[in-house]
Amino acid sequence: MSGMGVDPDFDQAFRDALGERLRLLRRARQLRREEVCAMLHNDLSIGTLGSYESGARRLTVSRLVELCEVLGTTAHEVLAQVHRDLRRPELSLRVRLKVITQTQDPELGPLQAWALARASDEHAAPDPMIEMDEVTLRQAAVLCGMTPLQLLRRLQLLAPESEGIRHNSDI
């Protein structure tokens, strides 16, 4: 592959998406970084695992395979999901604040707490439609322990499009 380099923008986006996927898998299994490192066959520091999850450091294929085994999945499945995440058009969401504040879904608790705080703002409209860009949606998803697409689908279940959720994704 002489003469061919890696696009630095794509490389960072890939590392970010891969790191997010690994972090979500670890959290879904309710494992701390220390526990994951202890389960690996080869030594790995907690800081190095953190740098993989944050996208700050590249992962070798063999390390990815080993991490995936510990996390109960395969490298193939993780890479396929990362590929889907990177190919998906930018996600954004418009949702009525009331849809989030009135949820009974315990997994949306962190998002509901945020929405309740926002709704209590004295300058807020009675039932505002809020805009969540992709970055905000990703952060909210991490808080709730799910992927952005899972969060988007969960919110869609709470209120069909006719009742206050609008998005530009193609699900």
Rank of each mutant, 00 (worst) to 15 (best):
G72E: 14
V82H: 07
S62H: 09
A56D: 14
G55P: 02
L24A: 12
T60H: 11
L40V: 10
C68L: 05
I46L: 10
L22F: 02
S45D: 14
L25N: 04
A38S: 10
E77I: 07
T48F: 00
E77P: 01
Q30W: 03
R33M: 15
T74E: 11
L67H: 01
R27Q: 15
R33T: 11
A28C: 10
Q30Y: 04
E77Q: 15
C37P: 06
S45Y: 00
L25A: 13
R58F: 01
L59E: 05
S51L: 10
L71G: 08
D43K: 15
E35C: 06
A28V: 05
L59K: 00
S62T: 14
L71M: 06
R57H: 06
L64D: 03
E34Q: 09
A38W: 02
R58G: 13
R29I: 04
S45T: 15
H41T: 14
A28I: 03
G50I: 05
A28N: 14
I46M: 10
R26H: 05
L24K: 05
R32M: 12
Y52D: 05
L24Q: 11
S45K: 08
E53N: 03
A28F: 11
A80L: 14
D43P: 15
V65S: 09
L44Q: 10
I46D: 14
R27I: 06
M39V: 03
V36H: 04
L49S: 02
T48H: 12
G55W: 00
R63N: 09
R26M: 07
G72V: 11
